[in-house]
Amino acid sequence: MQQILNFLIKHNHWFLFILLEGISFVLLFSFNNYQSASMFTSTNEVAGNIYSMISDVDGYFTLNDENQALLEHNKELISEIEALKEELATLKDSSAIAAFPDGKFRFNTARAVNNSLNKLQNFITIDKGENDGIGSEMGVFNDKGVVGIIYQTSGNFSLVMPLLNSKSMLSCRVKGSNSFCTLRWHGEELQYSYLIDLPRYAIFQQGDTVVTSGFSSIFPADIPVGEIERLEDSDDGMFYRARVRLFVDFASIDNVFVVGNDDKKEQDTLEQSINKLK
């Protein structure tokens, strides 16, 4: 007994080593789930606030460009409103307007405070969290197009899984056609992603615009994503694969919009109940 105890005491660093490595691996694997503890990521208050402070200072240097982009976006929105107003005036008397549903999407603005680009699994930290009504699996986009999907949230910060993450999948549609497909990132190239499983019968061309499908209930339909640059065969030759140039410049993300869907829960439970039946 004494000898066993002596042995254990003499080699206690082995046990500490195994314990610490164990903790590291638990952290590593639990991070792979949505909703897991966000204490050890940059959504925690300490890291979030420090990044927020740095980005406050940093933000001044890009104010000019950012203002210009917002002005452009404003201009587009104003012209769109004007066009819609005219449309509305012509429809005023018809009964169609009465049946127009209330928007089920809620929008929120946020600022990116931290951003990684060099990994296979990149993340963006934004400065809004649960206290602002943000929850996981909400969509994030900016004036150029889709940025990503909320992965984890804490009180005042959220972690976004951008399109530049090997685990990210986005349901998309090629504008002008009705076939749906999935956008995945292969790593390495910052500005390019791939549409996989494009059906053979569908006709696409170089330069076609890729937009959100509105299928997944995360994003409203028709938010721009990117532009098809090249069509190629998939590895098994059954489908097409398209190389897509993304509209968003992930190296300079600042102001973003977060979109939540009031009906998402309902749609999800319905879809899950069907899966259970299978």
Binding site: F17, L20, E21, I23, S24, F25, V26, L27, L28, F29, S30, F31, F40, T41, S42, N44, V46, A47, I50, Y51, N114, S116, K119, F123, T125, L159
Partner: peptide
């Protein structure tokens, strides 16, 4: 370092080793 770079456990495992 992990906490700030959103790589929970990776740096910790390597630096412990």
């Amino acid at each position: 370092v992990d906490m700030f770079s959103n790589t929970p456990g990776i740096n910790a495992a390597a630096a412990t080793a």
